[in-house]
Design a protein around this nucleic acid. Structure first.
Length: 291
DNA sequence: AATACATCCAACCGCCGTTTG
DNA sequence: TCAAACGGCGGTTGGATGTAT
């Protein structure tokens, strides 16, 4: 038996939303929250499909949306993420504060796709070369980290999908990919994922600003914060100190999600993937469950 | 000024995965 | 266990607007 339509197509209005409809929707959600989208139109007094209400709200009326043109930084992020993730617009949009998947998709289709294509033709280089983290020069450090994490994650997942033996506990070999997956699935990885997803809602407030604003007191034993120091000498000293500590120690004294994420992102020498590529002496602390 | 064509983007459609009863 | 309900997603459409001829 097929699914019934989400709404009575005869009774619902379609097309462009009027300001009056917008106001009704905003007022209702402000007072009651969206609840279930299916029942919302009836409760709010709108002759619209629930799906249409959800779309209108998420793509246009949500108060946290950023309107206006995309910044060069945002453009770079979209290009990098699209080349890496493909047309996963929701995933890409989640890394762009205040932008919706629809907005990103439209912007890609109308602007960036052509530009990237033209650029590739002009440079007559392989598309794949654009995907390498080494070629990522212009965008923000967070975008670089993001691309590196995502690349490693995709590598690991692809590898596991091709080699089911790795999923069995009898497999004696644990590679850097396996370690990465464990780390990815650990609290640290979760912090990273949540952090990147939540950056949209808190990005205007940098981590250091947030921390300072709450107490006004600098906590010196937080290595993540320490690494964010702008004083090169101080930073060097702190990095030396950190290199003598185990990651576990570092994570243990980083109490905030943001700080832990920052710590992983800024793990010594600045290349988060490099420590995965090096031989790892003891990764057991990252292994929540035996692979 | 009129027409044709191109571009943009809000909104819709249909599919998919998850939840629920 | 299964089917319906639901929310979310990506692809596509079509009206509005801009630009060229």
């Amino acid at each position: 038996m097929g699914r019934s339509p989400c709404c009575d197509k005869e009774a619902v209005k379609k097309g462009v939303w009027t300001p009056e409809e917008d106001k009704i929707l905003v007022d209702y959600i402000s007072k009651n929250g969206p609840g279930t989208w299916r029942s919302l139109p009836k409760l709010a007094g709108l002759l619209r499909c629930g799906k249409s209400c959800r779309l209108r709200w998420t793509n246009y009326l949500r108060p946290d949306l950023k309107r206006g043109p995309f910044t060069p930084e945002e453009e770079n992020s979209i290009i990098q993420l699209q080349s890496m993730l493909g047309n996963k617009w929701a995933a890409i949009a989640s890394h762009l504060p205040g932008r919706t998947d629809n907005e990103v998709k439209n912007f890609w289709n109308s602007h960036l796709k052509k530009r990237v294509k033209a650029s590739l033709n002009h440079q007559s280089c392989q598309p794949s070369s654009l995907l390498q983290p080494n070629n990522i020069k212009s965008e923000s450090p967070s975008a670089r980290h993001m691309v590196q994490w995502e690349n490693a994650r995709l590598d690991a997942e692809a590898r596991l999908s091709m080699d089911p033996l790795l999923l069995t506990s009898s497999s004696p070999v644990k590679t850097e990919y396996d370690c990465f997956l464990c780390l990815w699935n650990s609290e640290v990885g979760e912090s990273f994922r949540e952090g990147m997803a939540c950056k949209s809602s808190s990005s205007q407030v940098s981590s250091s600003t947030k921390e300072e604003s709450t107490s006004g007191v600098t906590i010196d034993n937080d290595p993540a914060r320490a690494l964010s120091s702008t004083d090169p000498i101080e930073k060097e000293n702190q990095e030396k100190h950190m290199s003598c500590m185990g990651l576990e120690d570092l994570l243990a004294c980083s109490d905030s999600v943001d700080a832990k994420m920052q710590l992983v992102l800024d793990f010594p020498n600045g290349n988060v993937m490099e420590f995965l590529q090096e031989p790892v002496d003891d990764v057991s602390m990252y292994l929540q469950d035996p692979i």
